[in-house]
């Protein structure tokens, strides 16, 4: 059971959150210009990292806000928590 620090509400138990999968996936501005493969990459392909992973979480049973988490998927160490729209932080792999 992870302990996540919501940027607004502080430390809360994982039960209050929903994980939204990989972060920093940007919706293409002109989808119609993409071929099937490029569009398929955006829709379906995810990194599924072993180790450092940037992901989105929403404090569903709280303030309702989405935010980003850098988590080590092996150790569950939380390396950074930052706002949606912020750049991916520089972290050692």
């Amino acid at each position: 059971m992870l302990l996540l620090s919501c940027p607004w509400c502080g430390d809360r138990s994982e039960q209050e959150f929903a994980c939204g999968g990989e972060a920093h996936i940007v919706r293409p501005l002109a989808p119609e210009d993409l071929d099937d493969r490029a569009w398929g990459d955006y829709v379906f392909m995810r990194r599924n990292e072993k180790g450092l992973h940037f992901e989105r979480w929403r404090h569903v049973h709280g303030c309702g806000r989405w935010f980003n988490v850098a988590r080590n998927t092996v150790t569950h160490e939380i390396l950074a928590i930052y706002q949606v729209g912020d750049d991916r932080p520089e972290l050692p792999e």
């Binding site: 929903a18 939204g20 940007v26 989105r56 929403r58 569903v60 309702g64 989405w66 949606v84 729209g85």
Partner: peptide
Amino acid sequence: AAPVLDWLESWLQTEWP
């Protein structure tokens, strides 16, 4: 009801601020 609200919020908050 809840998944749709999550869906709407995710677009508003992360992609279309």
